[in-house]
Amino acid sequence: MSESALLSRRLVVVTGKGGTGKSTVSAALALAAARRGKKVLVCEVVARERVADFFGKPPSGTRIRELLPNLYSVHVRPREAMREYALMTIKFETLYKIAFENPAARYFLAAAPSLAEIVMLGKVWWHAAHDTERGRLRWDLVILDAPATGHGLTFLTVPEVFLRLVNEGPLARDMHGMQSLLADPKQCSVCVVTLPEEMPANEAIELDAALRQHGFPPGPLFLNAYFASRFTPQELAQVTRGGPLLLAAGEAADNHESRAALSAHYEGVLRNAVQRPILPVPFFFERSFGAQAIDKVAHAIESAL
């Protein structure tokens, strides 16, 4: 898949295990798209928002904020999403208050099958497919930084599960709309982020299979924090046996190569098991999460795509 193909979708979903760098990849994709003149909105549906911080901006909260020219972000939280969504359906503020701002509503949020996820996904869907400004869609691209695996899959299959239980009413109608956007390879792409380690790699393989089984259009798999080999086996053997003066250098080289070996191993495992393009994203030693780091990741992704 070429980069322009990925970035010309209406909705790009970024999923994967927690701690694999989903937010980094989401921010980098957004930056790459914004640089191409696309107006991009990143929707963060995680406990704590991070993307604004990557660009040195205060948290966006539940209001859409501009982080860079053409690049916006919003933190999607259940309570606010519920309110926005319910108001769209019910239209009357007073009625909303009577029905939703009472103790029963809190219960309702917890009890209705994944209602919190439904309203959050509903908000993302609305931005991707219905949010218009002067007659045209406001966003060229919406990037969804989805919850961690397991929960991430639950999140995306929420319309499907809901429609099994309920098949009438305005919510059900919208769920059909969401489902068709999420299933359309021309408009949507679901990417996976993982690391060259056992648990994340296994989880990515399971996630890839589950996503395909549910019919989500496959985007690339980003193999984050990839260590490329720097030394030949012969060099490594010489240096590690090079005597006391080379003890430090030998250990560093050995550490590096053992991580490079893991990277290569899990890349192989993933290439065998996963039916989607694999893009290694190099490990960056600075480990800073600033705009510069995102810029580097964006460049790495751009050159790999």
Binding site: A99, L165, N167, E168
Partner: peptide
């Protein structure tokens, strides 16, 4: 009841029956 009818508009009444 008003509350129930409003909630039902949101989720449909099947769900309320199951609940």
């Amino acid at each position: 009841g008003l509350v129930l009818r409003t909630l039902a508009r949101f989720t449909g009444s099947d769900f309320l029956r199951d609940l």
